Structures are given as C-alpha cells and as structure tokens.
Amino acid sequence: MPDTHPLFEPADPREDAAATQRPPAPKRLPRTAPRPSLWPRPGQRDITEEATGKPGPATAIRAREWEMILASRAIPHSIRRQGSGYRLFVPRRRAVEALAELAGYAAERAAIVLYDPEAEPVRPPVWPAVLAWMGLLTAAWGFMLGETVVFGRRIVWKSLGAGDSALMLAGQWQRAATALCLHADPAHLFGNAASGALFLSLLCRETGLGLGFALTLAAGVAGNVLKVLIQGPGMHFLGASTAVFGALGALGGVRLANQWPPLTFRRSAPAGAALMLLAMLGAGGEDGMAVDLAGHLFGFASGAALGLAAGFWLKRRGEPGTAAQVLWGALAFLSLAAAWGVAVVR
C-alpha cells in the first residue's frame, strides 16, 4: 500500500524554481549634493592661529588646555576637529577676551619651571677646583716625606704624626688625622693623590667642594680610629688611602640617599659599584707592609655612613651655598692644622 503521509509527498518543481529566483535589485537613489558645513556658525570666530602663533590646527594637548582655561573663565567656546588637529571657535564679541586669557596663561606658565623627576640636576664642573686643591695637598705631602728644620729644631714628620695604635690608645688620637698626610715614598704619595683626585671630583660634584673635602677627612679619621679600637695595639700605618676609600664610600652613600628607597637594581647600583671598587682597589699595601685591608674597609664604611647621612640632609635642604661650602672647607683645614699643632707641641 503506498505511503500517503504529507512528509513523503514529492516536491513541486515550480516551487523550487520560485525559491531560487533572486529578488529584484533596489533602484539607486540620485546623488545629492554634500551637506554644507555648519562651522563656523554665524557670530563665531576661529582664533586658533592667533592663539598658537602659527598656521594650522592645534594639538590635542593644547586644545584641552584651552578648554580648561576658557571654561574656568565662563567664556563660551567650541573645539572642532580638523584632520589630525583641533580648531578653537569663540563668539566674536568675546574673542579679544578669550585671546587675553590664553595669552595670560601662557605667560604665567612660561615663568614657572616645571619639576622633572627624571632630569639630572645641572651642576657646575668642580674638577678644576679639586685638581687645584689636590695639587696643593700633594705639594704639602711631598714636603713631609723628609725632615725639616724649623727655627733650629729638627722635625721628623713621620715620628710626630705616623699612625701608632699603642700611642693612640695612650692618648695621642691626633695621629688618626696626621697619619693621613704622611706617605712612605713618592710612588705611594702620587698613587693616593691620583685616586683621591678622581673620587673627590665625583664626590664634590654631588655635595660641593667644601663639604666633599670635610666628608673625606672625617671618613679617614673615623676609619683610623675604628681600626685602632678594634685591632688594638701593635699597628703602624700611614697614608691617605683610608681617606681615599672614605671618599669612595661617601660617594656611594650620597648617591644611594638620592635614589632612596633602593628597591630596584638600578637604584642600588651606586652602592654596588662602590663595593666593587673597594674589592678591586682595596688590596694595596702601604710602606711595604702587609695589605691594610682593615684601614680601607673601615674608611669605606665610615665614608658610606657619613655620605648616607649627608645625602639625606642634602635631599631635604639642598646643596649648601658658597658661604657654607667655604665654612665646611675651613673646618676641615683647621681640624687638620690643629691635629698637627698638637703633634708638634707634644
């Protein structure tokens, strides 16, 4: 018996042909003229070129500034985009007022130096002054290499001022400063003078000339005192290397304070570089004796502590002026002169 269910009825070929026919294409509308621009509106004036002082549209940053300025002065305005830039329109009756407000803002901003945290501070070169003072110090150190007769009195500088831990523990603490001026031979002297000039130039660039020399002297004296207190009697030492490494430590401390807190590798790089220089240069001996690692280490540590304190102070108060630098330098010179005065009188 044939299946007469509707699902199994054969399809009509005429319906398939009608389904495959496409609908007729819509008729194209005739082209109309482009819509005329409504800008500038009647009564509006384009003051873009008058405000910028140059032809063409303004940048997005300048347009935002104009919008804030004019909105704060309740001047009606409109900013329209033109290509990659913007143009400013204001009512004609208030164009002069708007231009005056924009010019006043530009003049006020030009007089203000905006702080740039990434910019390095502009510092005058200090290395010529450092070289001049180091030249005078080198001449004085060379004068103390031998013996001197003053008013018929024979002065042996090394016996008066060389570092002796037993004598220092007995009360002659001025030797912590005078030992910095004495050297074993010319090679020892010029080596310390050259390295001292290098590190002092870098340190004084951060702190100023007078404060840099004061920090270096204080670090050298503190290093010698710590060495004697910790190691005890039985040591003899001389040379400015303790102060030289004190200058290196102070440089690292000041730079570390400027980049505080040192949470990144880049910020802690100055301290790491100073430690590397200590490891590379701190193995030099003095006077043919054993390597004075203790003096170098204590001088560096003292300089680092003093430099860190000075760096925080400079960060808060700023670099001292010329008068203050002269006072710091005079304090360092008078302290050293007083130490030698005590040594000669005793």
Rank of each mutant, 00 (worst) to 15 (best):
V90M: 03
H296N: 09
M1S: 08
M235K: 05
T322V: 07
P186I: 15
G223H: 01
P36I: 12
A60L: 13
E9D: 12
L102H: 01
I79F: 00
W133I: 14
R109C: 00
L88T: 00
F245K: 01
H236Y: 13
S84R: 15
L226M: 10
G223A: 08
V326T: 06
Q325V: 03
T207W: 00
P128R: 04
A339V: 03
P117C: 05
G191P: 09
G272V: 14
L38V: 13
T59D: 11
A337T: 14
F237G: 09
A187M: 12
A193P: 10
G239Y: 08
F237S: 15
Q325Y: 01
L229M: 15
P91S: 01
E319Y: 01
R35D: 13
G83C: 04
L102K: 00
P124H: 13
G295Y: 01
G299Y: 13
A18G: 12
G191K: 05
P55I: 00
G232C: 03
Q231Y: 05
S195G: 04
G307T: 08
S72T: 11
A194N: 07
S72I: 02
A332T: 05
W157K: 05
A187K: 14
S165G: 13
A343S: 09
L217E: 02
A33T: 13
M289L: 03
P6G: 02
F143I: 08
R73H: 14
P186Q: 10
L137I: 12
A240W: 11
P26K: 15
Q325R: 02
L327M: 07
I47A: 00
T32K: 14
F300Q: 08
L277H: 02
L137N: 04
E118A: 12
